[in-house]
Simulated scan of single mutants.
Amino acid sequence: MTHLGLTTIVVQDYDEAIAFYRDALGFELLEDTRLDDGKRWVVVAPPGARETAVLLARAVTGEQEARVGDQTGGRVGWFLNTDAFDRDYARMRAAGVVFEESPRQEPYGTVAVFRDLYGNRWDLLQLRRPGGPAR
């Protein structure tokens, strides 16, 4: 069996990125290992995530720095699934997460777009259960 293990988000600063993903999004810090040349191997994931996590990689070149906050050309690049949309939406807003819109219903579920601390766009998403309402 195979699965997607990590996805990378290029950040400006390790510690501010850890604080945002941990404190505002509620992620767990899974690993923070120091490497050579001031680099770190920093992995975060939503609580209970079993397969996929996020590698926070500090930009070290001008090309990488230019991508911080716009890694997907303005499109939503990450989808944070929840089983309790209202709870997580309220918690994230209280923690200072900036949502671009109010929650909306789509055929696939309840969704609202938010930005991370650098401006990357994410969906907070509660998928519709087959045969049932989104929430």
Rank of each mutant, 00 (worst) to 15 (best):
V42M: 00
D36C: 02
L56Y: 03
A45T: 04
E65H: 09
R50W: 03
A45R: 08
V60A: 12
T61S: 15
T33N: 07
G38S: 04
E51G: 15
P46I: 02
T52H: 07
A59H: 12
G38A: 09
R34W: 01
E51C: 11
A59S: 10
G48D: 11
A66L: 10
P47V: 10
W41M: 08
A45G: 10
L56A: 07
R40F: 02
A66M: 06
R67P: 05
G38H: 04
L56I: 03
R58N: 03
D32K: 05
A49F: 09
A53R: 14
A49D: 09
V68E: 08
P46A: 15
V44L: 12
R58M: 12
G48E: 12
V43Y: 03
K39V: 00
A45V: 04
P47R: 13
V68I: 14
T52L: 15
V54K: 06
V54I: 15
G38P: 06
V42S: 00
A49N: 13
A53H: 11
T52N: 11
A59R: 10
R50A: 14
G38K: 06
T52E: 05
E63D: 09
L56E: 07
D32F: 01
A66C: 09
A49S: 15
A53T: 05
V43P: 01
E51P: 00
A53W: 04
E51K: 13
